[in-house]
Design a protein around this nucleic acid. Sequence first.
DNA 1: GTTCCTGCAAAGAGTTTGCAGTTCT
DNA 2: AGAACTGCAAACTCTTTGCAGGAAC
Lengths: 148, 148
Amino acid sequence: MNRDPAQSLATALGASGARITRQRRVVLDVLDHAPAHLNAREVLRRAREADPGIDRATVYRTLLLLKRAGLIDELDLLHMEGEQHYYERRGESDHVHICCVACGRVEELDTHLVADLIVTIRQTTGFEADSVRIEVKARCPDCISPPA
Amino acid sequence: MNRDPAQSLATALGASGARITRQRRVVLDVLDHAPAHLNAREVLRRAREADPGIDRATVYRTLLLLKRAGLIDELDLLHMEGEQHYYERRGESDHVHICCVACGRVEELDTHLVADLIVTIRQTTGFEADSVRIEVKARCPDCISPPA
DNA sequence: GTTCCTGCAAAGAGTTTGCAGTTCT
DNA sequence: AGAACTGCAAACTCTTTGCAGGAAC
């Protein structure tokens, strides 16, 4: 569960033996500097701002590469808006994604409970957890009692 | 977070005002008696054993109905085999799904940590959690050190 | 009898793949 | 030079939708 988020994705991917092409550098840059939770379509859109010729397939292939290398995580945020997936840089530890079903807002929460869960899993099932994806369907404070 | 798993899905769905047609009864029966984690294709296959004329669209529409009524949960088990979703009857409380990346085995785990998480979310973010989906990418004991 | 539901067939979203040409190292 | 990567276009998987006929209440 140890990663180094200070390192750029390009550096990390290069270290894994993959070639750093112009197109990949653009995609990695998008992911490095983006707010969390971009879907593939949005990654493509942003990548094309820097390199208009870049193709859908290249984006998908790069995302797959990053997933396989463990450098990004794939989420689906409970399919609140269609079936697309969302991607985010993998950090030092997993966090919780809390999605408001009313307004669509997504919050992240870091809590020791995630680490506790990994320990509990090992102790009670013998499974060694690699990563934990927690997505919560919820209602945010504003949607529970709307502000006047 | 309170549900009554003793009640059949047909009864519960009927209570919500939906018509209980022959086709729906078949689909509900499949979900009532199935092992956990059927995908739509498998629900269709099993439903057709009881009613060969049943259509894909009917299965999807029934699953949507059940999701909306909060009677089933939709999972994706980390997309280990394609992009399909998996469905299971919603129980009294949420549990953890642990997926072995090596052999594909899926285990369920009930732990108070899920309830703890809901409390923590309320206290630290003010969000009211409705349901929690926890999917863990892991390696099972057999795949960590294969049995001779 | 009215409203809701079904099967069929076609469309749709999102993603993947084969291939010929190009670029990285 | 050689392996890896790219864009293009087509294909593929899973799911949804429009519609005309049929079943539930």
